[in-house]
Design a protein around this nucleic acid. Structure first.
Lengths: 192, 192
DNA sequence: TAGTGGTGAGACAGGTCTGTATCATCTTCA
DNA sequence: TGAAGATGATACAGACCTGTCTCACCACTA
């Protein structure tokens, strides 16, 4: 092999450990020392795999975004557009009920790195754009492209808003109300 | 007077200076030294008015929430519930176009202080609850209480989501799409 | 056996952070 | 004039931050 398996293992272990700490305590509040202590690796091991803390954050966000996309891909077996959207909302409902739910790490990244030119900002914005594009593509099958564009934007806003509500402890009502609104949007926009 | 006017002036000046820095650079990334340098006050002056940095943050959030409520109060002169909600959306549209718009500072506070028992978290959550209650009260005049509860939750999610989109540079489309969706929600829920 | 690459452990530099202490200065009002 | 309170300026402590450096260790391989 080009690289030994132990190498990739260490790197991935650091990414997942950092993810758990970032999402719980935030990016600035989580120090390198805490990450390497929790991951039980030497500091130099971390800095050999990632150029800097910001580089690690970007790697964490990209890994998390890919996992998110993969999970939705595996669930996308429903026939109708309405059901496909519903599957996405259901995924969020289950996510809200997870033990270690602390809000959306991408939204948090946007909050802590407000500069649009910053790599962390870009990585977080890309995840949002990906989710919107996914829903837009689904809706384009049942409505004009222009309507699919604005409807998918509205659905994304509902999901983001629901995630914020869930972080404040109202996850159950949030996703139910969001789906009620989403259902209305799809139904109205679906019938020209 | 009980306290000299200069006292309140200094305190308020610190609050507004800290607000400008917090919303632009975040809470953890903004140090006390930078706040007092920008405000041109001594460090002890700041610590005489606020018990700690967290105390200053809470004071900033509470002041900003009160200003927000005051601004909406002044605009709430429309007759119909639909127009009253529209006024709130319009306020956000103007906000998005402001020169120093960097997203919602309350959402950012929730992101950086994830502990629900933390005073900063509570102050931020209170602002969201206040906005929802305002819209809920408006809607209760034209629909059953139960529907007003879930409709106001959906409207809040749309606003929060639109604010996130605006932070990513899509403010114009965001508020338009949000209002389109909101209009549908109000219209459908309005006719039983 | 000897070399090679990944790793662990920890010291270290240079800077920044929050919060406290000290003392001089200014304004205000009696 | 004199007292009192608010403020400015600055030094300081103790902790934490990111990132670099050195050296020893271990597994594997030629």
């Amino acid at each position: 092999m080009a690289s030994s398996p132990a190498t990739s293992d260490k790197r991935q272990h650091i990414v997942e450990t950092a993810y758990a700490l970032f999402k719980r305590f935030g990016f600035h509040a989580t120090g390198i020392d805490r990450i390497i202590a929790e991951a039980e690796v030497a500091k130099m091991t971390m800095y050999r795999h990632f150029p800097s803390k910001d580089g690690l954050i970007v790697a964490v966000l990209n890994w998390r975004a890919q996992r998110f996309e993969r999970q939705l891909d595996q669930l996308a077996h429903e026939a109708s557009a309405r059901h496909k959207i519903r599957v996405i909302f259901d995924w969020h409902q289950r996510w809200f009920h997870g033990a270690d739910f602390h809000g959306c790490i991408f939204a948090h990244a946007l909050a802590e790195f407000g500069d649009p030119t910053h790599p962390v900002f870009k990585a977080a914005a890309a995840q949002k754009a990906g989710l919107k594009l996914r829903m837009q593509t689904i809706l384009e099958g049942v409505m004009p492209a222009e309507r699919a564009e604005s409807a998918s934007a509205a659905l994304l806003m509902l999901i983001e808003g629901a995630t914020l509500m869930a972080q404040m402890g109202r996850g159950d009502d949030a996703i139910a109300d969001a789906w009620k609104a989403a259902s209305t949007i799809i139904a109205v926009d679906d019938t020209p």
